[in-house]
């Protein structure tokens, strides 16, 4: 794949809509199903992914010419692990309150498919600014998807939003359970596909 021809804003939108990590690329489904039980969880994990993705993308983009092609995947993993460790340590040292909430999510990220995937597909072939915007787009897209899932599941499952009581009763407790995560992801994917289909048809017709 040659270097991208998209502009920065196109890259940003691309990550959120056209190539949304969860709804279009279907990557990182484990956290999408497991952690998106509340909006707050989605937001925190989204922020953590955003930072790791941007930092890792930029790093790989800078050093892309020095990586031996045979060991690029280990190098990606190493880069992600380094950034995760750095963010984890810095949070623990200087933002203990935030660390209390986010610590567990930050540590999870090392194994996220979406980050390795973006490094392999994009960052190792593109210059730093493009990689930066792609990273931001992907991070925001992930955050958007997680928060959408969290919104639906928290509202329907527990009747709350951000921990505040909205409905005053629990409509469908089923939605907080992991199985409902699959249903939500599936339905959202269908919605995304339908919207794109409708959009393309309109453009043609």
């Amino acid at each position: 794949m040659p270097a991208t021809t998209k502009t920065n804003s196109q890259l940003l939108i691309n990550g959120i809509l056209n190539e949304n990590p969860i709804f279009r690329l279907a990557l990182s489904m484990c956290p999408a199903v497991g952690i998106s039980t509340t909006v707050m969880n989605g937001l925190l994990l989204g922020i953590a992914v955003l930072f790791v993705q941007v930092f890792s993308s930029c790093t790989i983009s800078v050093i892309k010419n020095y990586i031996h092609p045979r060991i690029r995947i280990p190098t990606y993993t190493l880069t992600i692990a380094t950034w995760v460790t750095v963010i984890d340590l810095v949070l623990a040292a200087y933002m203990p309150a935030a660390y209390k909430e986010m610590g567990i999510f930050v540590k999870l990220i090392v194994a996220f498919a979406i980050i390795t995937m973006r490094l392999e597909m994009f960052a190792c072939k593109n210059p730093v600014p493009a990689s930066f915007w792609d990273g931001v787009g992907m991070g925001l897209g992930f955050m958007f998807a997680m928060m959408t899932l969290g919104f639906v599941r928290e509202l329907l499952g527990m009747g709350t939003l951000f921990g505040y009581d909205i409905l005053g009763f629990k409509p469908l407790l089923f939605f907080v359970l992991p199985a409902a995560g699959f249903f939500c992801v599936g339905i959202m994917m269908a919605v995304f596909n339908y919207v794109e289909l409708a959009y393309n048809r309109k453009k043609k017709g």
Partner: peptide
């Protein structure tokens, strides 16, 4: 890199 960050943030 990890070691340096650790040394800085440890205290």
């Amino acid at each position: 890199v990890m070691g340096t960050v650790f040394a800085i943030t440890d205290k």
